[in-house]
Amino acid sequence: MGIKGLNALVSENAPRAITSSEMKSLFGRKIAIDASMCLYQFLIAMRQQDGSNLTNEAGETTSHIMGFFYRTIRMVSLGIKPCYVFDGKPPVLKGGELEKRLKRREEAEAKAKELKETGSVEELQKFERRTVRATRQHNEDAKKLLKLMGIPFVEAPCEAEAQCAELAKKGKVYAAASEDMDTLCYKPPYLLRNVTAAESRKLKVDEFNSEKILEGFEMDLNTFVDMCILLGCDYCETIKGVGPVTAMKLIKEHGSIEKIIEAIEKNPKSKYRVPENWPYKEARELFLHPEVKDGNEVDLKWTEPDVDGLIQYMVRENGFSEQRIRDGAEKLKKGLKTGTQGRLDGFFKVTGTIKKRPAEDDKKKGGKKKAKTTKSRKK
C-alpha cells in the first residue's frame, strides 16, 4: 500500500527532489528492484486477450515468468544492471493489513464470479485483477528464471523495500526501485518509480532524492517517519480525522507523534481520536531500524545467461518461442557487456578544494600586482 498521500505532499513541498527522465538515462546504473511488487504487476499486466493469465500446457501460470524475462532484458539492453529483492517474512504488525487485503480479495473473487454471468468483459477483468496474489511458487519460478538469466537476486529477511534501501545506502546499487512510497522511510539515496510498471515504455522514470525531500519538508528522518505514520502505513491505523494536510500541519507544529497525542488529550474538544493501544512506536522502529542483511555482506554478480538452461525452462517446460528466448539471451549478453562501460560521471569527481588562480587573487587585491607586471613589460 505504501504511504497514503505522500507522493502528492512531496510534489508540493519538495518539488526539486523529483526528476523525471527516460529509462535510458539510467545507463550504467545498478538498481535494486522490489521483486514482490514486480510479481503483482506482471501477474496483472501479462494476460491473454480475453483477460486470463498466460499458462503453459499444464495450466500453470506463466505471466510472471514472461514479465521478468522481457522487462529485465529491456533494462539490460539500456545498459542498466538490475538486481531483484524478494520479501522475507512479513512483520507481525503487518498482519492486520494482510488480513484486510485477504478480505478485499475474497470480496473481489465473489464479485468476479457474479459478473461471469451478468457483467461486461471490462467489469469482469477489473475485479479479476483484484483477486491476484503472488504465491510461493511464483516467487520460486522468478528466482529460477533470474538465476538462468545471470541476474542476481537477494532474499530479504523481512521487507524487500527496506533491503533495497540498504543496498543503495551501502553503495552496492545506485537506487532502490519500487512503487511503494514507504521506501523513502528507509532513506535510500534515491527511489525510482515506474521502472517496471506495465506502461513503462510510455511512462518516464521518477527519481526521488531523499536528502532533498527532507530539506523540502524541513524535517529530519525521525520527524519524516512520524509524518508518514500519521498519513497511513501498512503497520498501523491512523488518528481518526487526520488527513494528509492535517498530518503535515500537526507534525510541523508539535514535532513528534508523542507531542501530538499529548496535545489531543489535553484538549477535550479535539475532533481527533487516537486509536486505543496504537502501536505507532513499533511502526516507527520498523522504519528506522528494519531487519535487513548488511549491504556490505551482499555480493552482487551479473553473469552470462545459461542459454541451454533457459531453453529447457522457458521453451520445453513453459511453451515459449525458442527463437525469442535465444534472441533474448543474446540481448542479455550484449547488454551486460555494454553496461560494464559505466557512466562518465563516475570518472569525474571533485577531490579536495579548488584553489583560486593567481589572477583572481590579484583582482581581490585591487589589481596592484597586475599593474606592476604591465609596467615592467613596457620596459
Rank of each mutant, 00 (worst) to 15 (best):
183 T>F: 12
287 F>M: 11
377 R>L: 06
220 D>K: 07
160 A>N: 05
38 C>Q: 04
123 E>M: 14
57 E>Q: 09
215 E>G: 07
123 E>P: 08
191 L>A: 05
140 E>Y: 09
32 A>Y: 02
157 P>F: 07
125 Q>S: 02
246 T>D: 02
108 A>S: 14
6 L>V: 09
311 I>Y: 15
70 Y>S: 01
167 L>P: 13
283 A>L: 05
113 K>L: 13
197 A>C: 06
135 T>Y: 04
261 I>T: 09
71 R>C: 11
348 F>H: 12
112 A>Q: 08
81 K>T: 03
3 I>P: 03
313 Y>L: 13
68 F>V: 07
92 V>Q: 11
94 K>C: 10
90 P>W: 09
38 C>V: 03
293 K>R: 05
112 A>I: 12
336 L>D: 03
90 P>T: 10
17 A>K: 08
201 R>D: 05
178 S>G: 01
167 L>R: 13
91 P>N: 07
273 R>E: 04
68 F>R: 00
284 R>T: 11
161 E>C: 00
285 E>Q: 09
145 L>A: 08
187 K>Q: 11
113 K>P: 04
154 V>A: 03
190 Y>A: 11
366 G>M: 13
17 A>S: 12
96 G>I: 11
47 R>K: 13
345 D>A: 02
354 I>Q: 05
32 A>Q: 15
317 E>V: 03
202 K>S: 09
347 F>W: 05
211 E>T: 13
26 L>E: 12
36 S>L: 06
279 P>K: 07
260 I>V: 14
261 I>N: 05
141 D>M: 15
351 T>K: 15
224 F>C: 04
166 E>I: 06
325 I>S: 00
349 K>A: 07
342 G>S: 07
280 Y>M: 04
361 D>H: 12
242 V>G: 08
180 D>C: 12
184 L>C: 00
136 R>P: 03
37 M>A: 03
40 Y>V: 01
49 Q>W: 01
12 E>V: 00
129 R>H: 08
336 L>V: 11
271 K>P: 01
116 K>G: 03
8 A>L: 15
240 K>D: 00
9 L>W: 09
267 N>T: 04
219 M>H: 06
235 Y>Q: 06
330 E>W: 00
225 V>Y: 10
163 Q>E: 14
191 L>Q: 12
324 R>P: 00
320 F>K: 07
84 Y>Q: 01
259 K>M: 00
111 K>E: 15
248 M>F: 14
45 A>W: 12
249 K>W: 10
157 P>K: 01
236 C>I: 13
37 M>V: 05
251 I>Q: 04
165 A>L: 10
341 Q>Y: 06
293 K>M: 08
86 F>L: 02
17 A>I: 12
302 W>I: 10
284 R>C: 01
330 E>L: 15
258 E>Y: 02
267 N>D: 11
329 A>F: 00
286 L>Q: 14
207 E>P: 09
274 V>H: 02
50 D>L: 04
310 L>D: 05
277 N>F: 10
287 F>V: 01
81 K>D: 03
290 P>K: 07
329 A>G: 05
116 K>W: 06
126 K>M: 11
173 V>S: 05
174 Y>A: 10
176 A>W: 11
250 L>G: 02
52 S>W: 11
244 P>L: 01
191 L>M: 13
358 P>T: 10
245 V>A: 14
247 A>I: 02
315 V>L: 09
129 R>Y: 09
280 Y>Q: 05
333 K>T: 04
103 K>R: 13
106 E>C: 06
87 D>I: 11
